[in-house]
């Protein structure tokens, strides 16, 4: 499998706190990789370093390299904004723009960056919403405020918003942890379909979810990558004792 994103000896510090310790992983193109581990193990920190979200945290220091199609995204000459257009992100809590309609939320990436012509926008809104299986539910209320949607719908709207800007990689930070089981199921089905086109890295607390949706799994503990491999292998015959203890619920 072709590598899309490669972390090379990635270290993240927050002041004196060494949050991610010398991690090296390859994320394969058009695959779903789950990052699991107990709270505070650095999962989200790893995820957020892939779209340079730490740039905004003054205390954060990222060292090592992250290669996107072989190019180091932390190179001085590279603008974090252009990276974020290629590497989209979906957050734990659905966060549609509250002042915008459903329609405007989908094309928010364009609207906030300038103008977009009407036909192009219409087409983009329809295709993006169809892609996240939200079109049939909201096609009659595109002008309604996005906050009127249910939590699950809002999260799918956020995913639509993310894919509307045509990224190549999508990062998901526990995208279903604030949702009910039915909405969670819909999101999971969605992720399954999205990997045809995108490379997906998902942080999850839910082990069954990781087992269900991911092709590869990375287990982190105390800022260190303990084990990385095919999901099937990690969940059936892990090499490390720590991994086995965690996935069988003996600690964490």
């Amino acid at each position: 499998m072709k590598t899309k994103v490669k972390l090379e000896d990635l270290n993240v510090h927050f002041d004196k706190n060494h949050a991610v310790k010398g991690t090296t992983i390859d994320f394969g193109e058009n695959s779903v990789t789950a990052i699991i581990g107990p709270s505070g193990c650095g999962k989200s920190t790893v995820l957020r370093s892939i779209n340079r979200m730490h740039d905004l945290v003054p205390t954060a220091k990222v060292t090592g390299r992250i290669l996107l199609d072989g190019i180091n995204i932390y190179e001085r000459t590279i603008d974090s904004v252009s990276i974020r257009r290629l590497v989209g992100m979906v957050f734990q809590k659905p966060n549609p723009f509250p002042a915008m309609s459903v329609y405007d939320n989908v094309i928010a990436g364009y609207k906030l960056n300038g103008r977009i012509n009407k036909d192009e926008a219409d087409e983009l809104v329809e295709s993006s919403l169809k892609r996240v299986a939200l079109w049939d539910e909201v096609k009659d209320r595109l002008k309604a405020n996005s906050m009127e949607l249910s939590g699950g719908q809002q999260q799918r709207l956020c995913i639509a918003r993310t894919i509307a800007v045509k990224p190549e990689v999508i990062l998901m930070d526990e995208p279903a942890s604030a949702l009910d089981p039915l909405s969670t199921l819909k999101i999971e089905e969605l992720i399954e379909g999205l990997k045809e086109k995108y490379t997906i890295v998902i942080v999850t607390h839910n082990m069954q979810q990781a087992a269900r949706i991911s092709d590869y799994t990375a287990f982190f503990y105390l800022g260190e990558l303990i084990e990385f491999g095919e999901t099937k292998k990690i969940f059936t015959t892990p090499d490390k004792k720590q991994t086995e203890d965690y996935i069988t619920g003996r600690f964490g």
Binding site: N51, M53, L56, G109, N113, R161, T162, V165
Partner: peptide, 20 residues
Amino acid sequence: TLREASLALGVPLWRTSLKV
């Protein structure tokens, strides 16, 4: 979360600050 939503869409910080 609102700032992050905008930034993650590739909107520069100055636009995010003013428009979001």
